[in-house]
Design a protein around this nucleic acid. Structure first.
Lengths: 227, 227
DNA sequence: TTCAATTATAAAAAAATCATTAAAATAATT
DNA sequence: AATTATTTTAATGATTTTTTTATAATTGAA
């Protein structure tokens, strides 16, 4: 029995990951796991799960922060996000909802409860038929994630990974300004911190390759893709 | 560049204190340092920092204990507190959160990582989730935060950051008079002090760009947006 | 009306941010 | 291991934005 629903589990404790994985797989969900926020971002971008379950308490980037960033990423606006919290930290619930969480699940977790909660959540999500973005096409530029290729006016362009990810991000929502912060999180990952000029250099390379006019600088904010 | 944010560092090792101080000052934070818990308490009471970074392991009064007391002090309930911990003592992490810590940072510390973490923490403290209005529309003027654009009679206008924020603020509530104080606070931020004429100049620029009649001066008080 | 306070304005100075290039460091491939 | 490709840093220059300064103009109260 397979529901075809994809769930991304994020927790720093391997035990919990395994425990939940086991129980959810049994119910026919496709499971993806991440040990920390950054991993979660990477996976989420590529997989676009139906539900993300985030532990609130994690080192480096906590659940809240992860959630906030996830919500900014194109394609992940409509994904259901649930938080795992230890029982008594209810202050975090308030903050969590502000950040865009859809539900809370208290530890310790009882499988039965969890599953019924998840079903409810996914049912709730059914309404949103959010198509995942495998191919982005805008302004004569096609982005093929599958083949890792940019196609511009019919001509195929091979870009190095970082450049590809950067362009894919910008082009995923033409017109939207992506802050440097968001770019860093989404292309580089939260704690792989690189110098500030790194983004610029990649932008330069992109402009060289696809033309000067597609990527516009919004000084003090970030960049946006336009055509 | 000065963020105006105050950080109190507490560690018994002078090396670490200096190392962190140096790196954080470079980022524009105001630094205060203490060698032990008691010193920390004294300073914190007087300064009310935005963030306190506490070494977990200190002689006499350890970080956890210091944290517990800090949290009791009036005015320090909402200060962000982060713990510095050696990598493997993760049981203390849990205890730390119970005591009221907002984050923990593992040693050894990489400056870049530290800084991105601190930014995240301070952002969290700001209550940065303060719903900034995404689209304001009034009197033929549309403000599109996502695209960072002003659209006037269908014509797109690019404004520099401060001008944009200022206009967005005024236009968010047409007719309402915004005092200079409020404008400063919300566009420039609580502790950034700029000269008195700065607002005027920005208003001038705005009037040049969108027309003279939208922004009205209320002498002695501030400005309002009308149409 | 007159005066003091406040704002307007333009131009200059200062600061912040980005662009660009070349070189260094990493990673991937052969 | 050597070569090549990619990524990052570092240094410098250019540009834009922000702030200050100085002076003029305006306002509203006495």
């Amino acid at each position: 029995m397979n529901t075809g629903k994809k769930i991304l589990l994020v927790d720093d404790e391997q035990d919990i990951l395994e425990f939940l994985s086991y129980n959810l797989k049994k119910e026919g969900y496709d499971l993806y796991t991440a040990n920390n926020g950054n991993e979660a971002l990477t996976i989420a971008k590529n997989v676009i799960p139906d539900l993300i379950i985030l532990d609130v308490m994690m080192p480096d980037m906590d659940g809240m922060e992860t959630c906030r960033i996830l919500r900014e990423l194109p394609g992940l606006q409509n994904v259901m996000i649930a938080f795992l919290t230890a029982r008594n930290e209810d202050y975090s619930q308030i903050a969590g909802f502000e950040v865009g969480a859809d539900d809370y699940i208290n530890k310790p977790i009882k499988p039965r409860v969890l599953i019924s909660r998840i079903k409810a959540l996914l049912r709730r999500a059914e309404g949103d038929n959010s198509e995942k973005i495998e191919k982005i096409e805008s302004g004569g530029i096609k982005i093929d994630r599958e083949r890792y290729l940019i196609i511009q006016d019919g001509i195929e362009l091979n870009l190095p990974k970082k450049e590809f990810e950067l362009l894919a991000l910008l082009a995923s929502k033409p017109g939207k300004v992506f802050t440097r912060e968001l770019i860093l999180y989404s292309v580089w990952g939260g704690d792989v911190v690189v110098g500030d000029r790194t983004i610029d250099v990649h932008i330069r390379k992109l402009r060289e390759k696809i033309g000067e006019d597609f990527i516009k600088t919004i000084k003090g904010i970030g960049y946006k893709f336009e055509f």
